[in-house]
Write a protein that binds this DNA or RNA. Structure first.
Lengths: 128, 128
DNA sequence: ACGTTAATGATAATCCGTTATCAATAATAA
DNA sequence: TTATTATTGATAACGGATTATCATTAACGT
């Protein structure tokens, strides 16, 4: 039977409260505020569990370790701050992507990643 | 002094002929047609060299090992065939992405990845 | 409260892409 | 040709993310 543990709740709570996709490292740090002793294995285990329950989903990025976000509404994209390295969800989506395809190609899905500087980092020197 | 080797030429030739970004594995396989004995280390070494010469550039993908493409024109995006796992360059770009950003966010760059089925795979069962 | 056992946490092990090592090879200058 | 040395290729080593191990801990049904 599935048990309701402090660790599990700390992880889910962190994801919900953050309101943005979190990496394992971010998650570990945030969850420690609730359960100081929590370890990486537990984080990975619970991420897997939450995912197979359909509560969260993995967000893969080019070149970066993946993040995890609460399964919310529908289709959306992400913004990665090049200064603080935090990932944010953005709503909205450029349409008409099928038009970009060559003849004979079929579009099934797409992924858009915006990069720049977030609100909180505005003013700080950019990483490039 | 920089020497002109068969391996180096095989790699560059493979990239040019393919006309699309290639993975190290694809590159290794193609280059073997020219130099049967070529090894991975040589591929990696020459990719690094060609990159630092500005001839090729790395293409990072979410969840996938990166590919390498000849530095050609300008801004473009990519299409990944979910059936054959080959990556293609596509020209064109949806504009107006700044509009998707929340107040206070700054856009520096973006990356768009389309997925679906390529020309050659049309008809074959999709991977999902 | 108690006993059962799912879950935890420290850490060893694994995986996979990439880099380092180093003796052997081959591209160039002389 | 020959000598020099950049380059190669087999493979060991590395690094970062993730998973396995297993003794210990703590949920929770009774």
């Amino acid at each position: 039977m599935r048990r309701d543990t402090q660790q599990r709740n700390a992880i889910r709570k962190a994801l919900v409260n953050a309101g943005r996709p979190l990496s394992v490292d971010e998650l570990l740090e945030l969850a420690r505020n609730e359960v100081a002793s929590i370890g990486v294995a537990t984080v990975y285990r619970n991420l897997r569990a939450l995912q197979s329950e359909g509560q969260i989903q993995q967000v893969d990025l080019p070149g970066q370790p993946s993040r995890w976000e609460v399964v919310s509404g529908g289709h959306h994209h992400h913004f990665l701050c090049r200064t603080c390295d935090r990932l944010f969800e953005i709503q909205g989506c450029p349409g008409g992507l099928t038009r970009l395809l060559p003849e004979g190609y079929t579009l099934a899905e797409h992924e858009l990643l915006l990069r720049g500087q977030c609100d909180a980092c505005a003013g700080k020197p950019d990483s490039r």
